[in-house]
């Protein structure tokens, strides 16, 4: 099975919407790869702590953020923009429904943690490695000084099956 995890990038804001993840002007693209340079292009945090063009985000495979990630439009382009940038896991306290479903449908992990656990993860930033054990539903975050935080999470069993099957299209094509 695909490996989930790697270097993490942190975005300290609630309600990051799909227009911020991938602006509507790129919806005319008909290949996923064309979305690659535009991930989070229009996102600005008030404190200036996020730069969509930074090296940090280019290296990341895990995105850690706050609540209601992916709200707004149904565009799966937003999930693909993550996918083509090698993001395999998003960790948040909650997700918008369509976005969360799109993630599992594409075989990408949406992990929900409590606000308190997220605070602990944010406390480790920057330079954090997060590895996910899908079987045990656990993740381990390690910072530059080798301090570790372990968190367990729970996935809806069906969503887990989708991730294991390689997405909903493959699953449904076999079953229905």
């Amino acid at each position: 099975m695909k490996k989930f995890g790697g270097i993490a990038t942190f975005i300290d804001r609630d309600d990051i919407n799909t227009d911020e993840i991938i602006p509507a002007k790129y919806l005319t693209e008909i290949t996923k790869q064309a979305l690659k340079p535009h991930l989070l292009e229009d996102l600005r945090l008030e404190d200036g702590s996020f730069d969509p063009r930074s090296e940090e985000i280019k290296k990341a495979s895990v995105l850690v953020t706050r609540s209601n990630f992916g709200c707004g439009s149904s565009r799966e382009h937003a999930v693909w923009a993550l996918e083509v940038n090698n993001i395999t896991v998003v960790i948040a306290s909650s997700f918008a429904r369509i976005f969360r479903q799109n993630m599992f449908n594409c075989g990408i992990l949406a992990v929900e943690l409590s606000d308190a656990e997220l605070d602990r993860l944010f406390g480790l930033a920057p330079e954090v490695q997060i590895n996910v054990d899908l079987e045990r539903e656990e993740l381990i975050a390690t910072d530059a000084r080798d301090s570790k935080i372990e968190c367990s999470f729970s996935l809806n069993p069906f969503d887990r099956e989708l991730v294991a099957a390689g997405g909903w299209l493959a699953y449904a094509d076999q079953k229905y």
Binding site: I98, N105, C106, L169, A172, D173
Partner: peptide, 11 residues
């Protein structure tokens, strides 16, 4: 829904 759900819906 997203595009994958749409594909399954169409199919």
């Amino acid at each position: 829904i997203g595009t994958t759900d749409l594909e399954v819906g169409i199919l």
